[in-house]
């Protein structure tokens, strides 16, 4: 018997192995959900190895991609940065368009509100000195403008045209010391002359007995032949008088922010 087994050792071993494999397989087919001890042990043993290999592979891949294989990276980086710059510029432009649209809409609303024919213009430069308050707009005699026409924005009076050339005009702002306009205190109807004082306005010839209080709105009176009646000039900031004076000193904050003028409306036929 032993002789026989020794003689057919190899085929017998093969058969045994196949049989064992078949038996285990068939028995595992019936108990599918369970994890055997063997499987568990293998998984447990291989997990650090698998993890290590995986990490090493990923690190190597990452090193290769990020530090060694960089043929296209510079090109791609340049391309993306260029694209980023373009997009930023476009975004800035869109923001600027949105703000401009808002301003122009307000100007258009004012244009529809006013009964006069008007012309929109863009401010292109400021006064060459800091003493005088003038700005230059991009419309001139070719567009129908002439000296003396009033200029407004939705917030109120800007000034009047001082000099006109074919395609440009200079506006004397209401805050210039040589600017004067006839005004009314809206609440009490007191009359005065509004003069510029650089950054603020003052009311000249406002009688001391007139009722003028802080916060009162100042509007154009329509006298003087330049500004139509009812345009906002500013708000009373301070009043001061003593009993001996005939007139009171009234300081007015302009309604318009003259340092941020961008688009203006010129009133073409504003004679009251």
């Amino acid at each position: 018997m032993l002789e026989l087994i020794r003689k057919y050792r190899t085929p017998l071993l093969v058969v045994c192995l196949v049989m064992t494999a078949l038996l285990i397989y068939s028995s595992r087919l019936r108990q599918k959900p369970d994890t055997t001890l063997f499987e568990k042990a293998v998984l447990q043993l291989t997990s650090p190895l698998l993890g290590g290999v995986d990490t090493a592979t990923r690190t190597a891949g990452s090193l290769w991609r990020h530090y060694l294989w960089l043929i296209d990276t510079q090109k791609e980086n340049d391309h993306l940065q260029e694209k980023n710059r373009h997009l930023r510029a476009r975004l800035d432009k869109v923001r600027e368009y949105r703000l401009e649209n808002r301003r122009l809409s307000e100007l258009l609303a004012l244009r529809e509100r006013l009964k006069f024919s008007t012309l929109a213009a863009r401010v292109i430069a400021a006064d060459a000195t800091s003493l005088f308050q003038t700005v230059i707009i991009d419309r001139g005699t070719e567009d129908g403008l002439h000296e003396g026409l009033p200029v407004v924005v939705p917030e109120g009076v800007v000034g009047r045209i001082l000099r006109c050339s074919a395609h440009q005009s200079r506006i004397l702002l209401a805050t210039d010391a040589s600017s004067a306009m006839a005004v009314l205190v809206q609440r009490s109807r007191a009359r005065a002359v509004c003069r510029g004082r650089g950054q603020t306005l003052v009311l000249d010839f406002a009688l001391a007995k007139e009722d003028i209080a802080v916060g009162d709105r100042i509007i154009t009176s329509g006298y003087g032949g330049i500004f139509p009646k009812g345009l906002t000039v500013g708000t009373v900031r301070r009043t001061q008088f003593n009993d001996l004076d005939m007139f009171q000193t009234v300081t007015v904050t302009p309604a318009v922010n003259f340092s941020r003028l961008e688009e203006v409306l010129v009133l073409l036929d504003s004679q009251p």
């Binding site: 000195t129 230059i136 001082l162």
Partner: peptide, 13 residues
């Protein structure tokens, strides 16, 4: 030249 772009009176500057 400055008066043309500043102030209101030509000849001041």
């Amino acid at each position: 030249l400055q008066d043309s772009l500043a102030g209101s009176t030509l000849g001041l500057f």
